[in-house]
Design a protein around this nucleic acid. Structure first.
Lengths: 241, 241
DNA sequence: CGAACCCGTCAGGAGACCGTCAGGACCGCC
DNA sequence: GGCGGTCCTGACGGTCTCCTGACGGGTTCG
């Protein structure tokens, strides 16, 4: 069944949406705050999200941006404002569609169906937690845990030791984790790290090499013989579990 | 079993409700005052709350607002007044439903079932008390206890020593506690502290740094080597247990 | 066999980022 | 009016991060 997450702080509207959607045979989750929304998105893995921008605890756009840091789930934004500036901002932040309140329920349903179709076209939502034999990349929590290789039989718990990564290191690793198993081209990685304006080819690839090496030093058992951060000569890099 | 908290000062009505609900196989708690209600909501973690607005000690709406500061539990409001202004206020404050007295018991039961269903959709309520190795953040009571590191074997009880926090410090800590384990972006924190209207990027982040430092001074064993109030360079902060 | 190419490693300087201290403005309370 | 507490901003020093340059090993191709 299609699962939809409704992020809406106003109880009355949240309830109305939930009832309507359940009648249409959706599996509905509801979150009233931004924090709960991010949590639910990570644990429940909805196929589509309906996001009201007028949240109490934090700006709805921030929720959207945080979500886009690790998930490609389609998002339909709800807003009371009619000016187009907010609409532009929302779409820039990664919204798939935009509906102004008050809205006709039928219209919302139609846009929802379209968003779901689009989402299905891009394949099922990937697991936001990537595990390898040596470390775990937790996209939603923005953390990477290293399997405690220490001799201790039972350190603290079964999780592992967190690794400190610099922002650039994390962005690079996250980009690879999002396409785990697949080769990621140099250009793709560089755009994620430095933005679309790139310098000379040679200098940029060199930049990548340095940071991949740094990641290997922090994550691989033997940095000179990497098992997970693999080089694809002439193309880019790949993260293999 | 579904647990319901009844907040009702009139003994006769409270008793009648309790009996009716228990007959329907609910697990019922009763509170007669607002203070007791907040306490019970924190310790017993009901799945739904029935709240009478006509309380003796403090305004029922204040109870509702205080509750919403840390919990998303569904609340059905009871009121003797018929004017719609109070109804609007209650719904604005976060009530899920509204029933005017006198009411038919069947109707209340139906609305209660609906509220519970809605609550289940949002997933289990998160723990409103965050514990770390050194201190405890008690969201409902708006308190933070420091583990008595003192040599005394048994200070007063097993709780710990309360720490005095300024309003801003508390809001900051609470915001982190609500997303415990996850990174909380600077923007998010600032919106919670200062509202949505922000100044220059540099000045605002500086403001954050000062208050995080202040919190560390009050909570961390070694403020210069924090173990729980962790900074995520370039992004924000994180509270780790 | 040498040249060209690609990759990985090390090192270092410029700059950004973070933490700390201190002091003035403001507010409520005695 | 004095006073304690809180909020907020400014200045400063230390640390970490980013980025580039130089060098060496391995492989491929002329």
């Amino acid at each position: 069944m299609t699962r939809v997450l409704v992020v809406e702080d106003e109880p009355a509207l949240a309830r109305a949406l939930a009832i309507t959607l359940r009648a249409k045979r959706y599996d509905v989750d509801v979150a009233h705050t931004g924090a709960a929304a991010l949590d639910a998105a990570a644990t429940r893995r909805p196929d589509v999200v309906v996001l009201d921008l007028g949240l109490p605890d934090l700006d709805g756009l921030d929720v959207l941006r945080a979500l886009r840091g690790w998930s490609a789930v389609p998002v339909v934004v709800l807003s009371a404002r009619h000016d187009s500036s907010e609409k532009v901002e929302a779409l820039d932040a990664g919204a798939d569609d935009y509906v102004t309140k008050p809205f006709a329920v039928d219209e919302l349903l139609a846009r929802l169906r379209a968003a779901v179709r689009r989402g299905e076209a891009t394949g099922p939502v990937p697991d936001p937690v990537v595990e390898t034999a040596r470390f775990t990349v937790d996209l939603p929590r923005r953390r990477v845990l290293l399997r405690s290789a220490g001799a201790s039989d039972q350190d603290d718990d079964g999780e592992g030791e967190p690794v400190r990564l610099t922002p650039t290191e994390w962005q690079l690793l996250a980009e690879l984790a999002r396409s785990v198993g697949r080769v990621v081209g140099r250009r793709e990685l560089l755009v994620a790290l430095r933005g679309p304006h790139l310098g000379s080819e040679a200098a940029e690839t060199h930049y990548l090499r340095v940071y991949v090496a740094q990641l290997r030093r922090k994550l691989e058992a033997d940095p000179s013989a990497p098992k997970h951060l693999i080089t694809e000569p002439g193309v880019g890099y790949r993260l293999v579990p």
